[in-house]
């Protein structure tokens, strides 16, 4: 039916290429873990939480490696950004699906698409020259957790909006028409029918947005001030896990370099954990749909 030898070669190549793509994940995780191993062995995982501070280069006490300030900065920034961007993104999705005429919805989608295309370094630059001076007027010094939260929120709105809209669009038309036939108001349809039906998709949207916020580096590096401290207020300068890697990788040696790879492992674990959570939603949805028939 087909010329075996040539197609066999093709099949081999496709399998090889796909395997290489899959292996890249192993390679990335493997190399980051391998480099982190040295620090985990020499310093031990406990000291990353128990040391007095983060001074990896100090000679006197073989360096101090407390990651907690950076971890808390990452978590606060992500939480703040998600609290802002979640409602904004979902509102944008509701607008496109339920309120806007077709052409306005299309325009809004375009703007969301373009917003997602702005590179993080440009967001960071804008934050640095526009947002930070504005915050400085209110509460010096300016570069702060707040600036980071605002920039991150703007950056993850497109992620949330795009996924939220596709999950709202997947709600069966029959549900909405049925609700409408029952005389339920538009608000009722949105909050009692559409949002519950799209629940897992909306949650996925927010979680993937959080994943993006955790991993964001450049923008947050440029607006947060990069002081290693657990933030006492939103106006305090902070340094996130990602910014810590970007700042110190250039000159780090030995255990210090390895400690930065430990930071990378922490980031990797957080993000992979979030992806795994959303994957479990996805299977949940298919089960729900199959039982509904």
């Amino acid at each position: 039916m087909f010329q075996w030898s040539k197609d066999h070669l093709l099949l081999l190549w496709l399998r090889l290429a796909a395997s290489v793509c899959a292996a890249i994940l192993l390679l990335v995780a493997g190399f980051v873990l391998l480099e982190a191993f040295e620090a985990l062995r020499d310093i031990g995982p406990v000291r990353f939480a128990a040391d007095a501070s983060w001074h990896p280069a100090s000679e006197a006490d073989q360096g101090l490696y407390n990651l907690v300030p950076m971890l808390s900065a990452t978590l606060f920034a992500t939480l703040g950004a998600v609290l802002l961007a979640g409602p904004l993104g979902i509102a944008s999705a509701l607008f496109c699906q339920f309120y806007a005429p077709a052409w306005v919805a299309q325009l809004q989608r375009r703007i969301i698409g373009l917003l997602s295309g702005i590179p993080s370094v440009v967001y960071g630059f804008w934050g640095l020259v526009v947002l930070v001076p504005l915050i400085r007027l209110q509460a010096p010094p300016g570069p702060s957790l707040l600036a980071g939260i605002l920039i991150l929120a703007i950056m993850i709105v497109p992620t949330v909006a795009l996924i939220a809209e596709s999950s709202l669009a997947a709600v069966p038309e029959a549900y909405l028409l049925g609700a409408n036939a029952l005389g339920i108001s538009r608000v009722g349809i949105i909050f009692r029918v559409a949002i519950p039906a799209a629940r897992s998709g909306l949650l996925t949207a927010v979680i993937l947005g959080a994943g993006r916020a955790i991993g964001e580096t450049m923008a947050i590096l440029m607006v947060c001030g990069n002081v290693v401290a657990v933030p006492e207020s939103v106006f305090a300068p902070v340094r996130t896990l990602t910014a810590n890697i970007a700042l110190e990788m250039a000159y780090a040696m030995g255990d210090h370099r390895s400690a930065l790879f430990v930071t990378g492992v922490v980031l990797l674990v957080m993000v992979v954990g979030l992806v795994a959570v959303t994957a479990s939603f996805a299977t949940e949805t298919t089960h729900a749909e199959s039982t509904h028939g």
Binding site: A18, S19, C21, A22, L25, V28, G215, T217, G264, L274
Partner: peptide, 28 residues
């Protein structure tokens, strides 16, 4: 099976922060 493995790993790879790619690129 291969398709499932490839798809899973690409999903995870898409979520890996760019700075971690930077670390990996530097080390590898």
């Amino acid at each position: 099976r291969l398709v499932r493995v490839v798809r899973r790993s690409l999903d995870v790879l898409a979520g890996v922060p760019s700075i971690v790619f930077g670390l990996f690129g530097n080390a590898f």
